[in-house]
Amino acid sequence: MTYKVDPAADRQYIEEFRRQPIGHHSPGLMRLLTVMRQDPSGRQVILICRKPFREWVLGEMPASRADPIAIESGPVFTSREEAEWEVFRRRWQKLTGEAINLPYRE
């Protein structure tokens, strides 16, 4: 059986990710992200770039290429890191049932 996210043990990595969504992460955060970034459904959360280096929204690529990509109208992000944080929050809630009510930056 592969690692199952444990909110009590993994909560410590939330702040590490928020400080640096893309970067050199600790082994514990790496393990958490590895679990989060696998979706056996075949669906894939993706980042839709609307304006290069300026504007992104989230999207979902379906399991089958014959089906269309779903593109969210918002929230609109002005950095990749901001989008990473939003996806992290959603995945944490899906895995643990807990909401993270923290913005990317205070």
Partner: peptide
């Protein structure tokens, strides 16, 4: 690969960007 292979996000260490 960002379209056809699942797991590319893991390899990249960040979300897969799709431009137009």
């Amino acid at each position: 690969e960002h379209i056809t292979a699942r797991g590319a996000e893991l390899q990249m260490g960040r979300l897969l960007q799709f431009g137009h």
